[in-house]
């Protein structure tokens, strides 16, 4: 049973997350096995996708160390699955279910009725798509600009 670090508790408060929601994401991932594992074994990333929000929890054996979310809905790789295989670049994560290294790819990102692409990591086998924690600021700024322009 993981707990939530004090740092993440502050983050949750600032971003309007509930502790129970984050723990639910972790518990669901542990039960289903649907998660990414860092290749060095240091952390796992679990996610929950709803219509308007994709939420993530980054955790180790003991505690949740980060959580983040984006409103853009991540979809399939741009140009289809085969097109993105030409120059793949490995990420530092492994798909827990498939044991495959997840790859850096451009995937479709839908937001407020428009579609563009954005950077994500994708399991080549089960095709599950994740956004890395470091990339979420890029999406947040893009969401903010698009929200203003399309309002």
């Amino acid at each position: 049973m993981v707990t939530i670090s004090d740092e993440v508790k502050t983050l949750l408060k600032d971003n309007g997350f509930q502790e129970s929601d984050v723990l639910e994401i972790v518990n669901a991932a542990e039960a289903s096995g649907d998660k990414l594992k860092a290749a060095d074994g240091s952390v796992c990333i679990a996610k929950n996708v709803t219509d308007n929000l994709t939420s993530y929890a980054v955790y180790n054996d003991k505690e949740v160390v980060n959580c983040y979310a984006h409103q853009m809905k991540a979809g399939e790789p741009a140009g289809g699955w085969d097109a993105e295989q030409e120059t793949p670049l490995e990420s530092k994560y492994i798909c827990n279910k498939c044991g495959e290294t997840a790859m850096n790819m451009n995937v479709s990102m839908s937001f407020m009725g428009m579609s563009r692409v954005g950077p994500a990591i994708v399991c080549q086998k089960c095709k599950d798509v994740y956004v890395e924690p470091e990339m979420v600021k890029t999406l947040a700024v893009a969401e903010s600009i698009l929200g203003e322009k399309r309002a």
């Binding site: 793949p88 451009n106 950077p119 890029t138 600009i145």
Partner: peptide, 30 residues
């Protein structure tokens, strides 16, 4: 990843007849 985007302007100057397709998989933002 450093949060120093989100704009990416790929300026492929000069002749790119033989490599333009490669750039389709360069990392892109919205």
């Amino acid at each position: 990843k450093a949060g120093a985007g989100p704009g990416v302007y790929l300026h492929l100057c000069g002749n790119h007849a033989d490599d333009y397709d490669m750039w389709r998989t360069a990392p892109m933002s919205p």
